[in-house]
Design a protein around this nucleic acid. Sequence first.
DNA 1: GCCGTTTTCGGCCCGACTGTTTTCAGTCG
Length: 584
Amino acid sequence: MIKFTKEEGMTNQEIAKEFKRIADLLELKGDNPFRIRAYRRAAQNIEALSRDLSEIPEEERRKIPGIGKDLAAKITEYLRDGKIGALEELKGEIPEGLLEVIAIPGVGPRTAKLLNEKLGIGGIDDLEKAVSEGRLLDLPGIREKTVQNILKGIALLRKGRERRPIGKVMPLAEEILESLRSLKGVRKISLAGSLRRWKETIKDIDILATSTDPEGVMERFVNLPSVSEVLRKGPTRSSVIVDGDLQVDLRVVEEKSFGAALQYFTGSKAHNIRLREMAVRKGLKINEYGIFNEESGERIGGEKEEDIYNALGLPWIPPELREDLGEIEAAMKDDLPELIEPADIRGDLHIHSRWSDGSHEIHELVEEAKRNGYEYIAVTDHTKGLGIAGGLTEERLLEQKREIDSLNRKLRGFHVFIGVEVDIRGDGSLDLPEEVLGRLDFVVASIHSGFRQEKGKLTKRVINAIKCPFVDLIAHPTGRLLGEREPYDIDMEAVLEAARNYGKALEINAFPMRLDLNDIYAREAKKRGIPVIITTDSHILEQFRFMKYGVSVARRGWLEKRNVLNTLPLREFRSYIRRRRHAR
DNA sequence: GCCGTTTTCGGCCCGACTGTTTTCAGTCG
């Protein structure tokens, strides 16, 4: 047997994809639904791993939730052969084109199977042809309305609504939320869904409300100026389109069910399934109206989210943790993290000024920082290698240092640390000599070019920077840009190890397109005791407000205040800097 | 196919909505 080699790093995503495909094909086959769910659950848990499956010893893989004897063997098989026999067999039994048919919204496995068996349809093209020839109407249970829905579904699928970075969706959502909150008749109102869990990308906006006048609220909701299309409108649920192709769902429930509905519509699905399983074992039943005693039907609660969790013997779990990635187990042991809050942040340590490609003078950055309640910032402009960003030469940098020194003399209770974002060059060297870096307070290092180098070389560049005694922080360590650029092919396991060994901090870059480290690596950093710093990488003042997105990544990564260095008050952060400089 | 403060076998979340039906299956979140 030949060892199958390919680009590494993406293996987990590939295996997860294979499992999902098996699940889809089993569904088309009409297989045991629980078996299908097992594949989907395994895929989800694999996607959430921070380590590559190939690096996890075979005997340890069964410890991953949802991976048992059989799936562990299939993982081994994939790593060895690059394919899974069971999947290949399924492909032989079921036309793969049906996978695109079940991807059509409104068309599920039963319909796809029917289309295939009765009309020989093996893909979307066949289906469109059959529709135009009027052949679908020969089928049992399919009439004109269903045909129209299938056509709409195909159009929708082709349009391909992409997930958007949360930083682009949240402002829209907050705007809608505010315009609804001010309506007469609206009482409680909250975001729900993935937005409330602060997932890094969002597909639609979910809003939940209680009201004395549901019809009136719905009427005004579908008539908001930003609404371009009304998908459906009812007394308890309406859906509209805003901003091109972004769907917004508003649900209105009774006051006494608000908590249960909020819990339910916040998800995640995997988290809710776990809770309901727990409920069943306790003789309870959870639905979006409340939590009930299964036998007597007696209502135990539902007005608050806490009612649901407490009835199961659990403390309330913050939405950002609700992914079934260990939060339920932690809650059972009363061992949930005390998550970092936006108000814990005391300073921003990655900011650009007009000295390179930022738009503002340093004193303006200081004013903005104060408005955000900070006690310090580090000004970290680019270095000369980034000519396009007006990167600083040694001379310019030292000139900037003089300006900052003089500014600091005038400041009370606030401090500007003199920093730089030094470019890690293609050969792994830094863009400024160590004597210059040594005269600064805070050095951020990051990659801005040569993203496509091979893994070994890229990894070495970053580790080289970590080893440099003058570097404090590695910025946007994986280089990904949501929806635009994949993370570069870097061995994060090695980077994390190096950061731990050399006591260097890793950044959560709060820029909405970056969010890098992501939640998975942030959690891994915490596990290994690697300090994290959350920064905005601001180039204009308005970007200071991105901090909350960085904090949300930290929260999703289970980080507490103590794991994040820029929660330290000025005095303590200063002594941290001093200690580091002393240790060089 | 997974999993065990009920279980190594027998369970495995719950309801709304839609379109097609005269009582329900399929799909979705």
